[in-house]
Design a protein around this nucleic acid. Structure first.
Lengths: 310, 310
DNA sequence: TCGATCATGCGTCTATTTTGCATGGTTATC
DNA sequence: GATAACCATGCAAAATAGACGCATGATCGA
């Protein structure tokens, strides 16, 4: 019930350009431009100012955006409380998540919701963590399952969101089948430090996982190749180009010539998978139910993993 | 920046009927009906239920309306802070007030604002106190100058508003020029208890002032006639039909055969004139400036009154 | 200097919203 | 107990607001 134009302004505060705001909100750039102009008109405030070939927020604009955080949270909280008190049914529910998280956790969630609440229109958007937060702000989605990350844009305790840990997904190492260590079941990062590593491009979503894993043990890996998708990385490893890190949740799918080893040693690298919602909305019955389903699935994964290790 | 449909719902919660809501908001009844239906659809909540020939709020609806009070206040507060921080100019400003208050305080305020802020579009609505509160909720006006009252609908410390005392306007008594007491300058209510009184209809806006004045001294007046406008009441008194109470701010305008006496005695009946704004908006520079102007005018009235009494 | 990027204005179109009237159901009045 | 008044709502038409696409102008990097 917060005016859509204020939401648009908040998205703009995130992206910085009209074009990106349009892409994220689903409007056209001229629509965003018109909305923000209209917003300034009705409020009687100058929120934007020209800056080079773009525009940027004025001090007033930044003030308004920052101050609107608790407003959004309070509305979400009110809505959640009303939903809970009145036992009402939400008409639409947007989910967001990235690759493996989406496949392993989000898809089952959507399927469950679809069967338990047939009248609910569930929409799933695959997007990387940073974009998931953007989509939450833009109110395109209501719940995101993402890899915890400390990006420059969103901290772990951002006042706009509430996050719940679902599970820690350990990173394995994958090596070519003809590698000397291929017969082993475990390896340490130190043992593999000298190998040619295959990772994502620096600055990409999961690259920080890679660096964090190695800084924890104090060695500097040699990055030989870059891949975007896990599938590509696996193929590279299969071709003998090097070794790589692969989250346990990412399946090998019987890839040729690739062996997966558990990582042992003092540092056990892992990625933390969390669910994020807009602050205040966590009390919503639909969110609560979803978090419950996610947690059940996460626990199931952990249990299966324990049995497997045993 | 709160969705207009939520504002409409809040107004409905006040009025209870679609028609009254339409009148107050300026929409047509079918528009209000459609808005509320749409609101229920997007929220996925049932807010209204049929009740006889009308509709009434469900428990969820009441919950939502009550919970939206702080939301509105917080938005107003944010807007006020942004206006103050950014030194921005509001495009529109709505004022409300009733009869003498409007004439003596609101008109000068509007005139002053018109000259100091030419680009500001000032709109003045004459309305009785209860309606002024309604208009504040409906966001048709931003500031109201009213007679303090404890109606069944709005208490003095309603969480939706903030009120500031401007001045206490004493009630005088007006009697026919040929009345035995006409040569006096003051009178007590006890002396006049037996007179035939002219007042407003029971239940009307200022009738409670009348009854409060007499209950304070413990006598029961005899109500002979009823008038709606002060002008009418004065004419009745001039015609010798009885005596009446008249606020000091209401001018006699050289009415024929009518004498005005100060009331003395243990109880000095008065009406308290206050300015009311939506909670949170009081920090707005425009509101602050307006309150200042109102206070200056009120003090000027009080000073002139002191000199006159001297 | 050229090309790329970005915001914005304008004309057009679409979608939403409002209106006015008619209808159905409910209460009050005589 | 019949009639009138009242209230909400559905429907079609009208008005309004909003979005889109394209073109323009401005700016930055190569």
């Amino acid at each position: 019930m917060i005016d859509a134009r204020l939401i648009t302004l908040r998205v703009f505060a995130r992206c910085g350009t009209i074009g990106a705001t349009a892409e994220l909100t689903g409007y056209s750039p001229s629509a965003v431009s018109a909305q923000l102009r209209e917003l300034q008109r009705v409020l009687g405030m100058q929120l934007l100012t020209k800056d080079g070939r773009g525009v940027r927020l004025t001090a007033t604009g930044r003030f308004l955006v920052a101050g609107s955080d608790p407003l959004i949270a309070q509305w979400e909280s009110l809505r959640a409380a009303a939903m809970e008190a009145g036992d009402q049914v939400q008409p639409h529910f947007g989910l967001g998540g990235f690759s493996t998280a989406a496949a392993q956790l989000l898809a089952p969630l959507a399927a469950t919701l679809r069967s338990t609440r047939p009248e609910l229109e569930v929409q799933v958007l695959e997007a990387d963590p940073a974009r998931c937060f953007d989509l939450l702000i833009a109110e395109r989605i209501d719940l995101a399952v993402i890899v915890a990350m400390q990006s420059e844009a969103y901290g772990e305790d951002d006042p706009r969101f509430e996050q719940t840990v679902l599970l820690d997904d350990p990173l394995d190492v994958i090596i070519p089948a003809d590698h000397p260590l291929a017969s082993r079941e475990t390896a340490t990062l130190e043992e593999l430090a000298a190998e040619p590593w295959i990772t994502e491009a620096a600055g990409s979503t999961y690259h920080s996982l890679f660096t964090a894993a190695f800084t924890a043990v104090g060695v500097t890996p040699r990055i030989a190749h870059e891949a975007v998708e896990w599938e590509t990385q696996i193929a590279f490893v299969g071709a003998g180009l090097g070794v790589g890190l692969l989250p346990r949740l990412a399946p090998l799918r019987g890839a040729e010539n690739v062996v997966r080893l558990r990582i042992t040693g003092k540092a056990k690298p892992a990625r933390r998978i969390v669910a994020a919602v807009r602050r205040g909305s966590i009390a919503s019955p639909l969110i609560q139910e979803s978090l419950g389903i996610l947690q059940v699935n996460a626990d199931r994964i952990l249990t299966a993993r324990l049995e497997e290790d045993h």
